Computed example of a mutant assay.
Amino acid sequence: MNKFCCALLALLPAVALAYPIEVEKQYNGAEIVYDTTDIDGNMAAINLQNLGEARAECTVRFINGPETPRVRKAVIDGGKSAYLTAKFNRAVIKLRIKLTCNPK
């Protein structure tokens, strides 16, 4: 029983690092798929993949509470992908991402 409790306590920090990520998306006709990742307690990333043939211009706003939003922009050719990251000064409790893409 003692070993079980120690193993359970050892796993707690790994669970505490994860935070929820909400994505508000607006594709405007672009064929984009995304995947979000929490890299660290104060860092996040989004991977954008363009499934269409037309080039897409995307703007991503990473919003972490009272901090200034981090804005990243990418132009993604058809069949290609882009990986955008943001680092914050404070630990992230809940991250909101606003994704806006337009075909070019």
Score class of each variant (00 low, 15 high):
Lys94Leu: 12
Ala16Thr: 09
Glu31Trp: 04
Leu84Gln: 00
Val71Ala: 08
Leu11Val: 15
Ala56His: 01
Ala56Thr: 15
Arg61Asp: 15
Leu48Lys: 01
Lys3Val: 06
Arg90Phe: 09
Tyr27Val: 13
Gln26Ile: 13
Val23Leu: 06
Pro20Ala: 06
Asn2Pro: 02
Asn28Thr: 03
Arg96Ile: 15
Thr36Met: 03
Asn42Cys: 09
Ala7Pro: 03
Ala44His: 01
Gln26Met: 11
Val71Lys: 08
Gln26Asp: 10
Lys80Asn: 11
Cys101Leu: 06
Cys5Lys: 12
Ala86Cys: 07
Gly79Asn: 11
Met1Trp: 06
Ala82Phe: 05
Ala30Met: 02
Ile46Asn: 06
Tyr83Met: 12
Lys73Met: 10
Gly65Pro: 02
Ala44Thr: 05
Ala56Val: 15
Tyr19Thr: 02
Ala91His: 12
Ile63Arg: 09
Cys6Trp: 13
Val92Asp: 03
Ala7Asn: 11
Thr100His: 05
Thr59Lys: 10
Gly79Arg: 10
Gly78His: 04
Ala45His: 03
Cys58Trp: 00
Ile76Val: 09
Ala54Glu: 14
Tyr19Leu: 00
Leu51Asp: 07
Gln49Arg: 13
Val92Trp: 07
Glu67Phe: 01
Leu8Trp: 10
Lys3Arg: 10
Ile21Ala: 09
Gly78Met: 04
Leu95Pro: 01
Cys101Glu: 06
Gly78Glu: 07
Glu57Lys: 12
Val75Glu: 13
Ala18Glu: 05
Tyr19Arg: 07
Gln26Ala: 11
Met43Gly: 07
Met1Val: 14
Pro13Ala: 03
